[in-house]
């Protein structure tokens, strides 16, 4: 039996969790600040330092975590539904590392200095290119193994290039930032990063608006879906582009944060009765919730210098991934 709860209840529960976690995120930082005073200062627009910490540090960080996490969760749900493959996710099929490569090229070699949106455009282009490469390498109806192998190859290549370029970059600090691009971090994000993140993210979200039913039809396979009115060619391009837009924008700001796109749709799928259209909004909300929670954990962990948030998501995600593989192995035998 499928234990499906109604979608509206799931969305409500996720929404309440997000509200609660966001509040917690605003209360969490390296320094303790008096919240009432901070709120007072924030709303009165005064020059108070507590208000400054709340509105310029913790609020943008919270919003960026929610948006970037949502994009990764949604990106995972979209790719899994499109490729009808539960292991397809931005991290595994190259989107994230391609985005990191694109962002590194534009940022460290001066393009991003020319206009603000150059950075996310670099990330988006990188994500699209890497995803298409994996897709073409693996072929249309690729099995899970083929897809993952193609993803491994493209990821390795993109990350090697990231490393190389950071070593060649003019900035003396570039080399030390490799870990940041490979693991992802939300430290020191400001509202500037929010503006970098927003345009591509909104455009991507709009592109997949109302695509849920089409993804449902893909459940029957590509040919049946085509016979039911789905324009496969356009759908593929639309989704690849949308995922590139949202994941590319997110990675340009946070670096490649792993496993959210894989884990979140997986956990939520049984709760929506495995239906792709019902999975999209919960996956976005769940992704935001997971990244925000991981980022709070990062801020609370006592460490010399902040731990990268990708470390936490990978510590959760990698064992989960292994469990998934074992599960599939058992199903097949």
């Amino acid at each position: 039996m499928i234990s499906a709860i109604t979608q509206s209840r799931l969305i409500l529960a996720l929404g309440l969790s997000i509200a609660f976690t966001a509040l917690l995120s605003l209360l969490t930082g390296s320094q303790a600040i008096p919240l009432l005073q901070a709120l007072h200062q924030s709303f009165n627009g005064g020059p108070g330092i507590y208000g400054l910490i709340l509105t310029e540090l913790r609020l943008p960080r919270t919003l960026v975590a929610l948006l970037a996490g949502a994009s990764l969760g949604l990106g995972g749900a979209l790719m899994q539904s499109l490729l009808r493959n539960p292991l397809a996710s931005p991290g595994l099929i190259g989107s994230a590392s391609g985005a990191a490569l694109g962002a590194v090229i534009t940022l460290y070699f001066g393009l991003a200095g020319m206009f603000t949106l150059a950075l996310p455009i670099g990330g988006i282009a990188g994500a699209l290119l890497a995803t298409l490469t994996v897709y073409l390498l693996a072929g249309r109806d690729a099995g899970i193994l083929t897809l993952i192998l193609a993803g491994v190859a493209v990821n390795a290549f993109a990350l090697a290039l990231v490393s190389l370029l950071l070593n060649l970059a003019p900035s003396p600090y570039a080399v030390q930032e490799i870990a940041l691009w490979m693991l992802g971090s939300l430290a020191n994000v400001s509202r500037n990063e929010l503006w970098i993140l927003l345009p591509g993210t909104l455009a991507g979200w709009l592109m997949v608006w109302r695509q849920g039913r089409t993804l449902d039809l893909l459940t029957f396979g590509e040919e049946t879906a085509a016979s039911m009115g789905v324009d496969l060619h356009r759908l593929r391009w639309r989704l690849f582009l949308a995922v590139a837009l949202i994941v590319g924008s997110a990675v340009s700001v946070t670096g490649a944060i792993g496993f959210i796109g894989l884990v979140v749709p997986h956990l939520l799928r049984p709760l929506v009765g495995h239906q792709p259209s019902r999975l999209l909004i919960p996956s976005a909300m769940g992704g935001g919730l997971l990244l925000l929670t991981a980022d709070i954990v990062v801020r609370l962990l006592p460490a010399q210098g902040e731990i990268k948030v990708g470390v936490v998501t990978s510590l959760i995600g990698a064992p989960f991934f292994l469990w998934l593989i074992l599960q599939r192995k058992r199903d097949m035998s």
């Binding site: 499928i2 009808r84 449902d216 040919e223 039911m228 495995h274 792709p276």
Partner: peptide, 23 residues
Amino acid sequence: YLPQLSEIAWPMSVERLVALGRV
């Protein structure tokens, strides 16, 4: 069109799968 092999990617319920025929 009813293809030879009924490939179903996700373990959805019978009711929901049948309903998709109205899409």
